[in-house]
Computed example of a mutant assay.
Amino acid sequence: MAGLQHSVVIAAPPERVFDVVADVERWPERIPTVDSVERLDDGPLAVGSRTRLRQPRFSPAVWTVTELTAGKSFTWESKSPGVTVIAAHDVEPHADGSRLTLALTASGPLAGIGWLMTRSLIKRYVETEAASVKAAAEKD
């Protein structure tokens, strides 16, 4: 299994940060590493919700929410032949507002080689996502 984790402190209350990170339909306007988002079901994110995400240099991927704690965290996963990717988005209170932690793991028979080929790009994307959520949450 391969993975990474990145945290950022945000000068906004946890509820605001979670609202920004869970509003995946607005990711393309807020996060430059996301080209488009297509929700495949209606309503707010919930366990079982599916979203098609397009990012530069990656094939479109369908992400399915596997865990959700309202106002605090959600985890989703995407499967392709030989690889399962799990991405977690966790928000917790911090003395200066909130701490957002993004974590990504890849597993499966092709995960190792895939990780070697994409690790630095994924790291930049995760860091950019965290910085973009921070900017959006602190803006309002």
Rank of each mutant, 00 (worst) to 15 (best):
M1R: 06
G3L: 08
S7D: 08
S7H: 09
S7P: 02
S7T: 09
V8I: 15
V9S: 11
A11V: 12
A11I: 12
A12I: 09
R16Y: 09
R16V: 13
V17P: 01
F18E: 06
D19Y: 06
D19P: 03
V21R: 02
V21P: 00
A22S: 15
R26Y: 09
R26A: 14
W27D: 06
I31F: 06
T33I: 12
V34W: 03
V34C: 05
D35V: 10
D35M: 05
V37S: 04
V37I: 12
E38H: 06
E38P: 06
L40H: 04
D42Y: 07
D42S: 12
D42P: 00
G43V: 13
G43A: 09
L45P: 03
L45H: 03
A46W: 09
S49L: 03
R50S: 08
R50I: 08
T51W: 05
L53T: 03
R54A: 13
R54D: 15
Q55P: 05
Q55W: 06
P56W: 07
R57Y: 13
F58A: 07
S59D: 14
T64I: 10
V65K: 04
V65I: 11
E67T: 07
L68M: 09
T69E: 14
T69I: 15
A70E: 13
G71M: 08
K72R: 15
F74I: 00
F74T: 00
E77Y: 06
E77P: 01
S78A: 14
S78P: 03
K79Y: 03
V83I: 15
I86N: 02
D90Y: 07
D90E: 14
V91D: 04
V91W: 01
V91N: 00
P93A: 15
H94F: 10
D96R: 14
G97N: 05
T101D: 02
L102F: 06
A103Y: 02
T105C: 02
A106P: 01
S107R: 08
S107D: 13
P109F: 15
L110A: 15
A111H: 07
G112W: 05
I113A: 15
G114R: 00
W115Q: 05
L116E: 14
T118C: 06
R119D: 13
L121C: 02
I122N: 04
K123T: 14
K123W: 15
Y125G: 01
Y125A: 10
Y125F: 14
V126P: 01
E127L: 09
E127S: 04
T128C: 10
T128W: 03
T128V: 12
E129M: 10
A131I: 10
A131C: 12
S132I: 01
V133F: 03
K134R: 12
A136Q: 03
A136N: 05
D140P: 05
